[in-house]
Structure formats: C-alpha cells, structure tokens
C-alpha cells in the first residue's frame, strides 16, 4: 500500500500492483465514508504505507486503475468489508 487517505466523503487506499507484464501500476481504491468505515472497524491507522494488503474490488468500467472496494485483507490478516 502506498497511501491511505482517511477523510470524507470517502476513504481511499492507493496500492501498487504488479500486472501480468511485470509493470507496477498504482491503483486507486475507494472505500466508504469515515463513519461507515469506523463502524466496520477501520480507523485512521488501520493501514500503513508499505503494508502488503489484498484488495477485492469492483474495477472501474473505463479501464483506469481504480475501483470500489469490496473486501480488504490487512497486513495482519484481518478482513474488512
């Protein structure tokens, strides 16, 4: 993970992902509102830059490297949805 932005209206994650050709692409992952994420157990320090995380998301329809998160597995193995 390269950046975690804990702010409204939505929380964001940025993650570097290596694609099939070995190119590293920075993906933009949109999460929910701050109150909504707090209710799901996500706080301002849940994710730290450099964490290895796993993201399931609905990708953007236009092919840009981003999407809307579905579940995220944090570095400690905890799953957030």
């Amino acid at each position: 993970m390269t950046e975690f932005t804990f702010r409204n209206p939505h929380v964001f994650l940025f993650v570097d992902v290596e694609n099939e050709t070995g190119e590293v692409v920075n993906y933009w992952v949109e999460m929910g509102t701050i109150p909504g994420m707090i209710r799901r157990g996500v706080g301002a320090k849940t994710f730290q830059s450099g964490d290895a995380i796993s993201v399931n998301m609905y990708p953007l329809t236009d092919g840009r490297p981003g999407g809307s998160y579905h579940t995220i597995v944090a570095a400690d193995g905890k799953t957030y949805n």
Binding site: P9, H10, V15, V17, E18, N19, E20, Y27, G32, T33, P35, G36, S54, V55, N56, M57, Y58, P59, G67, H70, T71, N81
Partner: peptide, 28 residues
C-alpha cells in the same frame, strides 16, 4: 450508509459467484 451521491444506500454483497469482485493483481 450515505454514498457520495448523497443517497441512502445499502451495501450490496452479491453472493453469486458471477458477481464477485475481482482480486487485484493478475485477476483484475
């Protein structure tokens, strides 16, 4: 929750395999 359009929303978690979100990296 309230989405960025200001709508009252429910978080939809499709249970059918057809609707699963895609794991990043190669799967994406």
């Amino acid at each position: 929750y309230i989405d960025f359009l200001g709508r009252s929303q429910v978080n939809t978690t499709p249970s059918n395999n057809n609707t699963r979100p895609h794991k990043l990296a190669a799967t994406l």
